[in-house]
Amino acid sequence: MGLFILRRVGVMILTGLCLTFLVFTLTNLYPNLEKLAKTQGNFRMSDEEVTSFLERGGYLQPMVVKYGEWLGVLPSYRHENADGSIQGRCILPGQAPEEAPEFCGVLQGYWGFSTVFKDEVGSIVATRLGLTGKLMFWVMVLMVPSALILGVLSGMNEGSKTDRTLSTVAITTTATPEYVSGVILIAVFASSAVGLKWFKGTATSAMEDANFENFFLPVLTISLYGMGYIARMTRASMAEVMTAQYIRTARLKGVSFPNIVVKHALRNALIAPFTVIMLQFPWLLNGVVIVETLFNYKGFGWTLVQAASNNDIELLLGVSVVSVFVVLVTQLISDIGYVYLNPRISVS
């Protein structure tokens, strides 16, 4: 088991390095840098001015070197200006060059500076991630139990009327992406055209003070899309368990049906959904981006959109690193959990 985890972690780190290098390359292509120079300087810069700006910032070094500096394994680039002063990535404004550290990258905890929010990337990501964490927590609270109940109810009597109805519900929710269900939910429950006005159509106020009225719609929108999928997995796995020999034995023994479902079937039927729930995290991340944009909830997904559409290179990199990390860690947990829950699988 230890070796298995070790190997998985190794592959994970390798994947993480490859992915961050990919994102780094794509965000540091010359057109992006040119745009960065023009937004930092002014929009009427000539080509020579752009080149000299980029030269001073160390942007014109080979990609691998820049990546190493960003990661913090290579000493950071320093440029000596014409007046003899030294500028560099690690040297904060007003700091003497001698005092500045030689390495400053992600490994040293320095994530760079956001050009849009005028703040340290690390602190932006942390605050936004906290807000999204709140959203995700309530999504999980709503989504997982309802999906499992839906799946168990339809799977315990395969082919029955309950099963047909609930399966259709599950298929419908998987066919409804967040930007469709969100729009429909806002239209029905929040707009003045229908007039129900039960909930608020924006979640901006939920950032400080989340309550049922302003937070339920975004949570429901994300949950719906993932719910159908988990419910269908649970249904399939439950239906399979219900045909097993030991369930038949229990029935012949005269155990009541609710008891069979709860005591005999449930534990075995929940192995498959567990992996699915963990693997849903990357999908939830997508949902979060859409829903936060739709409901104007300024969390992690909203930051991603802002960073990407405003060419905020360092913030986008920070956001990418975090999201890739989340995806990889959940994959790891799902693998380990699967082995742990299912005694039939051995890793060696």
Binding site: L19, L22, P31, I290, V305
Partner: peptide
């Protein structure tokens, strides 16, 4: 394949479909 799958789809779109790219 796992490399591409570990990317959140929207991030990938934002990286590939911008005018600069």
């Amino acid at each position: 394949a796992n490399l591409i799958l570990a990317f959140p789809v929207i991030l990938l779109f934002y990286l590939l479909v911008t005018p600069e790219i």
